[in-house]
């Protein structure tokens, strides 16, 4: 486990002073969260890759032009850029791609599962793949709140403000999203990944 790592603000400061390695570290640190968030919104891996590039290009342009507000936090800021680009994508194209099928082989952190049998790894991959599909199939309002809270790390109050509803409505949508996911997952056996908690 990485200890005493340089925080995002320090990396940004280094990057502003021209340290490209600091930027590479930021990208490595947040690429997975960012890409997953975009993917869950647009449901298409190729569009998600493009939008992730666009997101970082916007971020680079902002930082390199001296317009980055160093008082804010980097991850919520860049996730907000990604979210807006993903929403723009839908507005422009007015399309909603169906579930994308994929082989899933490069999706998971293989080191983490290195000690698992091939069979348990396969079950886990299938469960994770299934969960991704279930999230994508949630009713739009529930999916939106779930992505904003879980992946974009916005508070329920921030979500309520951003979507123009009360905090109780935002909470209710999240609750229904969780209940729906639980219901759908329980239809499938083995319904749950039994090893998701640390041993």
């Amino acid at each position: 486990m990485e200890k005493a790592q340089v925080n995002d603000s320090e990396l940004i400061s280094l990057y502003i002073r021209g340290n490209e390695k600091a930027f590479a570290k930021l990208v490595q640190r947040h690429k997975s969260k960012l890409y997953t968030t975009i993917y869950l919104i647009v449901k298409d891996q190729y569009v998600a890759e493009d939008l992730m590039q666009d997101t970082f290009i916007k971020a680079v342009d902002t930082i390199k032009s001296g317009k980055y507000n160093e008082e804010g936090k980097f991850l919520p800021w860049i996730i907000r850029i990604a979210h807006n680009l993903a929403i723009d994508y839908f507005r422009k194209d007015k399309r909603y791609p169906s579930v994308v099928f994929e082989d899933g082989s490069s999706v998971f952190n293989t080191l983490e599962f290195a000690e698992d049998s091939v069979e348990s790894l396969q079950i886990r991959q299938e469960t994770h793949e299934h969960l991704r599909e279930l999230i994508q199939r949630l009713p739009e309002q529930q999916r939106q709140v779930l992505i904003m809270r879980h992946y974009e790390e916005m508070s329920f109050q921030e979500i309520a403000d951003a979507t123009g509803v009360s905090i109780n409505t935002a909470l209710g949508r999240m609750r229904y999203a969780l209940i729906n996911l639980r219901k759908q997952l329980s239809k499938r056996a083995p319904s749950y990944d039994k090893n998701i908690y640390p041993r």
């Binding site: 969260k33 997953t36 998600a48 890759e49 994770h128």
Partner: peptide, 22 residues
């Protein structure tokens, strides 16, 4: 906990394009 496990990785080439742009 399960949703934390479904994070995906972009392609290496995508990351490299970003780093090159910067």
């Amino acid at each position: 906990a399960l949703m934390n496990k479904i994070e995906r990785q972009p392609r290496i080439s995508t990351v490299q394009t970003i780093l090159n742009y910067s």
